[in-house]
Simulated scan of single mutants.
Amino acid sequence: MKFLRQFMIILLLSFLGEVLKMFIPLPIPASVYGLVLMLVCLMTGVLKTSQVKDAAFFLIEIMPVMFIPAAAGLIDSWKVLQPLLLPILVITVVITVFVMVVTGKVAQMIAQKRGIKNE
Rank of each mutant, 00 (worst) to 15 (best):
S31C: 05
G104T: 06
G34L: 03
I95F: 12
I116E: 07
R5Q: 14
T49W: 01
V32E: 01
D76W: 11
I68S: 00
L37I: 15
L12H: 04
F58T: 15
V97Q: 03
I62A: 09
V106N: 06
G34A: 06
V106Q: 01
D76C: 04
M66Y: 14
P29S: 15
A70M: 12
D54N: 09
Q82E: 08
V97S: 02
V36A: 08
K53E: 07
L81C: 04
V52L: 04
M22A: 05
L4W: 04
M66Q: 11
L4P: 04
D76Y: 11
E18A: 09
V90E: 02
K113L: 13
T96L: 09
L37P: 15
A72C: 07
T96K: 02
I68T: 06
E119G: 09
Q112P: 12
P27E: 02
V36S: 00
F67K: 02
A55T: 14
W78L: 07
A55H: 11
V80P: 00
T44F: 06
I88E: 01
K53I: 08
K21H: 06
P87H: 09
M43I: 13
F3C: 05
I88H: 01
G104F: 10
V106H: 07
K53L: 11
A71P: 05
Q112T: 13
V40F: 10
M8F: 09
V46L: 08
G34S: 09
F58E: 15
P27L: 00
L12P: 13
E61M: 09
L85Y: 11
L12G: 14
I24S: 02
M63H: 15
Q108M: 10
L35I: 10
P29T: 13
L12I: 01
M109F: 11
V52N: 02
I60D: 08
I95Y: 11
L74I: 04
L26Q: 11
S31L: 03
I10V: 09
M66W: 15
S31V: 08
T92Q: 04
M1W: 02
K105C: 12
L13N: 07
G34I: 00
V19T: 08
A30M: 11
L89T: 05
I88P: 00
S31W: 03
E119I: 02
R5P: 13
L89P: 00
